[in-house]
Every structure is written in C-alpha cells, then in structure tokens.
Design a protein around this nucleic acid. Sequence first.
DNA 1: GCGCGCAACGTAAACGTTTTCACGCAAGGT
DNA 2: ACCTTGCGTGAAAACGTTTACGTTGCGCGC
Lengths: 330, 330
Amino acid sequence: MANVSVASVSRALNGHGGVTAETQKRIREVAARLRYVPHSAARSLITRRTQTIGALLPDLHGAFFSELIRGIDLAARKRGLYLLVSSSHGDATEAAVALRAMQGRVDGLLVMSPHADSAFLDDNLPIVLPTVLINSHVRSERHAALDVDDHGGAFAMVEHLIGLGRQRIVFIAGPKVNHDVQERERGYRDALGRAGLADTATILSGDFTEESGYRAGREALAMQPRPDAIFAANDMMAIGCLSALAEAGVRTPEDIAVTGFDDIPMARYVTPALSTVRVRIAELGEAALEVLVRAIEAPDDAPPEPRAVVGTELVVRASCGGNERIRRRD
Amino acid sequence: MANVSVASVSRALNGHGGVTAETQKRIREVAARLRYVPHSAARSLITRRTQTIGALLPDLHGAFFSELIRGIDLAARKRGLYLLVSSSHGDATEAAVALRAMQGRVDGLLVMSPHADSAFLDDNLPIVLPTVLINSHVRSERHAALDVDDHGGAFAMVEHLIGLGRQRIVFIAGPKVNHDVQERERGYRDALGRAGLADTATILSGDFTEESGYRAGREALAMQPRPDAIFAANDMMAIGCLSALAEAGVRTPEDIAVTGFDDIPMARYVTPALSTVRVRIAELGEAALEVLVRAIEAPDDAPPEPRAVVGTELVVRASCGGNERIRRRD
DNA sequence: GCGCGCAACGTAAACGTTTTCACGCAAGGT
DNA sequence: ACCTTGCGTGAAAACGTTTACGTTGCGCGC
C-alpha cells in the first residue's frame, strides 16, 4: 500500500536505516492507518528472540509474590520485554513440567523454587537458556544468582538489640530446609559472636506459622534465666510470640523485646508495633531481571555474573524498645 | 533420525492419527532422547494460536493481585495455557501501550483496569481478540465480563447487622469512581430499604486508606444520635475506624459495631477481630479464565456470555458482636 | 489377475517476518 | 567518458512447523 517491498517495510518499522526518511515516514503512516502489528511469531521464528522472559515461582501467597512480580514487571516493561509467569506449582514435578514448557517461548528465565536443586536444573534446563536463580541455595557455576541479604539483615537486627543493652537474645528458627532461615540464623550467630556473646546463642524451633511462634514464646518464658529479647525468623512467628508474652503478662519491650523479619503489612499494626527487617522485594525482582538481561545479551560462553545480594532495611518500631526509625542497608 | 518425514513427526507428536502405533512410539522415543521441543513460534505462525492468554492489570499491591494471578494461573495451567502478565501500569497511556503490545502474542485477554472505559477498549482492542473484563464498570455488548458480587456481599453484611439489632448503620464510602464502591453502597442501601430503614442511610466519605477511616470514625462519633454500627467499604478504613473508636473510649462491638470488606489477612489480627466480607479472589481469576477459554473456542460471531458474578463470604468475627462464623454465598 | 479403496507416509506449500545479496542509479574522481 | 563508490530498494531465502495433497503398497472383492 505504500508502494514498497516488504523488506523496506521491515527496515522502516525497525528503524534499521537504509531507507529514506521520506519513505520511512510514508510507511509508518500507512502502517498506523492500517493498524498494522507485526506478527510476533513470524518475527520470533527468524530472529530466534521472543522478547519474553519467564518467571518460575513456587506457590507463593500475599505480598512477597505480588511485590516480586511487580519489580520484575516494572523492569521488564522498561526494556520492552514481556513477562510469562508460571507460579503456584506445588512440587518438583509440576515445576519441571512448567520449566520445560517454557522452552523456546522465552529468552531467559527467572527461577525461584525450593524444588530447584542442582540436579533438577541440570535435568530440565537447556544449557543455552540464560537463567537467574532467586533466593536459591544451589551454588551453580552455570547460572547467575541473586539473594536477599538475610545474613546482613539478621546481623543488623541482632546488633541493634545488643546496642540497646539486650544480653540474652533467643532466635526462633523456621523450616530447616529453607535457605533464608539458614542465612538469618547465621546472621544471628555472627552478630552474637562479634559481641562476644557467642555462647548465649539459643535456637528455638518454629515453622513460620503464628502458632509455632506462640509455642516458641511460651518456651522462651519458661527458660532460666529468661531471655530479654526474642528474634523470630519471620514476622508471623514474632506476632505469635507477642500473644504468648501478652497472655503471660510479660511486658514488651520492657521485659522482653520481640523482633521479626519481612516487615509484612500487619507488622505495623500489632501492639506493640513490631520491629523487623524489611526486604526490598520489588527491588529484588528488578535486580534479577537486569542481571538476566545482561546474561541474555552476553556471548554464550561468558561466565555468569557473580552471585549478588539485595539489601534490607532495619525497621525499628516499639517492640524492641529503640527509637522508631528505618535504616537502609545496601 | 527416526527415518520418517517431518510430517510424520508432527502427526505422531500431536497424536493426530494417520501413523502406526509403532512408528509413533519410535518417533516419541527419538524425540525424548534428543530432548526435542517444538519451536513454538513456528507453530504459532502456522496455527495462528499462541496458547497464551494475557492479563492486563492495574498497579495492584498485596493479596488481591497475588490471589487473582494465582487463580488465573491455576486455571490456565490446567488447560495447558501460558500466562502473559502486564501489571502495574499507572495510567491509561501505559495501559494502552501494554494492550497493543499484547496483540498477536495472545489468544485472549483478561482485562482489569480502572482506565479501561468503553472508548479506551474500542481504540486499543482489535475486535477479533476475545476479551473478558474483570470488575469493570463498562457494559459492553462485545466483551464478556465478570464481577465480584459487591452488592450481594454488602447486602448480606448489612442484613446481618440488622439481624443483630443494629438500627443506625453508617457506611464509609471509598473513591467515588470505583465500581466496587458503588456496588457496595448499593448493597448497603438495598439492605436498609428491605428492612424499612431506608431513611437512616448515612454515607461518610473515605478513600480506602486507614487514615480516611480514622477521620470517618471521628465523624461518626460526633453524630447525633450516635450510630450503633459502622460498615466500611474496605478493611483498611474499618481498621482506621477502630482506632478512632478505641481512642475515644467507645467499646467495639458493645457500643458500636464495626465491619469491613475484603478480609485482608490483617483483619483477623486487629482487636477486636474484624467482621468483614471475604472476596474469593482466586475463584474470580479461575472463573474469568474459563469464560475466556469458552470465548476463544466459540465461533467468532457468537455473542459473549452474559455478565457473571462470583460470590462472597460473610466472615463474622468479634467486631460486630455476632457469633463468629463464616457464611458462604454463591 | 485386475482394479479399487484405504491406510501410512512423503512432498511441498504456506504462515509473516528478517536479512543477505544483487541491482540500479546518482555522484564523484580519474 | 569511464570506473568506482555508496546508497536506496527489491528479490528471494530462511526460520520450523502444520496440513492439503499425492504417492505408495497392501488387502480385498470381483
């Protein structure tokens, strides 16, 4: 309709040059008038690019999931990339199916899955597909990885408690297999160690539920001597712990300080408001996508970027007895 | 490698018949051994199907977003469909760009956008692309639509309050343009009308924030005669309202009952625990996807399905003075 | 024994792009 | 006046499937 060949249309619309400014303008006008949209499948067929990245996520609820997607989506849109998500797969088999199904539909993959161990990835990922592992415990030479700075966040929180004069700080752990939990516990131990309190380390078990926090709180109350601070591996357990303390007539933070991890929306509303470590989840998503983009653009044989970490913020509210504030850590 | 033509490979792998069971088996084996995955772009090019559906969502945070995606994803995976999401676009221009960009990459579209009015859709949607509108105020003959039963949920809540003997029930509204708010208000008015209390209807303004709920709570306290129940259009405002009441030394629910809408996770943890209306969001997503699938499979000239609605549940906790329970409504 | 039909399979066109290559033409240098 | 250069453009191949159509071989009925 613009009296040119398809080749010129392609050149004009992609701005590759090689066409007069005048013909380019004409082609663009006709294209707009006809509401022409390039057929993406045909384009992908020849370019071997889909302009799409895939996100493989576990069965995640609530704020973490939505913030992560939000960050990824934001960064993807900025680069004109599409986002194919496959979330809420419960077991490794489902994850494997989803992973294989993404083959060929995406230029790169963001994988956050508790099921994704080394063997799993080797079995189901073609070597050629750039992949970024999020919060994964697998240490792979072949894939880039990005984690939350669980260690640093926990370290900062415990150091803060120590700075407030707390001497007997108990840690409520979460599910043992969880990589985040292990790192948070390590941060707890390291901070104690640095203050010369290594031998006071006490770990109560929990499973991330409010219920288990409540039980751990009661255990803590029964200890001799009583701890003067409780650091839970996540906010829900800290909230359960608060109930246990309140029920026993123990004052927070005067008698025992209580802190959590995650800064879920609820943390601000419980009484007393919960001190916690905020994870900048959207930022995690954005950063992951950017690492992935670089991996996609890099030559095939380039080594993956070194493992990186996104920062956390210490959120000081009433439950630990400090002055309320937020301190950002990068 | 299996000594057959590409045509037979295609037939074998797609199970179209026309090949011996024996050759089919052989082809399948070779394919598995070579880790062959069909090139989806090439397939889409010829079949004109992408096996992908797109979801266009506004800048949504928290549980609503994640639950919705979860429902959609679950239903999509069940049908072997992929999910392309584009969320968190702030204004109509961004939404339009996202919408156009999805052209040709998806077989159908799920649109939930406050910016998506009739004109917007007409401008940016090709007529041929099956589309389901979620929680939209536009009444279009061309697209199917699915809404939350805001009216029914609000109606049930107000009826419940009336059943508990409350006579002066105030409603805290949300943003005026919001379709959900309008429907919730309508449910409130209808329930009052049915009980012969139409002339007691009182609307306080709010904007969905906790802060505005707090202000509305103070307004309510100043009214003469004082209301004996406050129904907020969402939970955050109800929570703000609770603070205002507690601050004034007014007892909940004895003096004034307070209820919300949404059943956000926090609702259960405030004091007193908040009675509210739970929206089955994941179910909304699933249902929307299924309507969409039917629209895709229907002949092009078939009329869209009639507008449908997904149910809500009345969640009775302490803040309204009834016996705690959950009542499901379909 | 011959033709017919049918099942199994192969051949090749088609899908809509991008990109390489060739071509024509104008400008500029010898 | 001729060759070179470079730029704008068109022709055609290529991407990897699906599918309409053609071909083959076999069994069966006459």
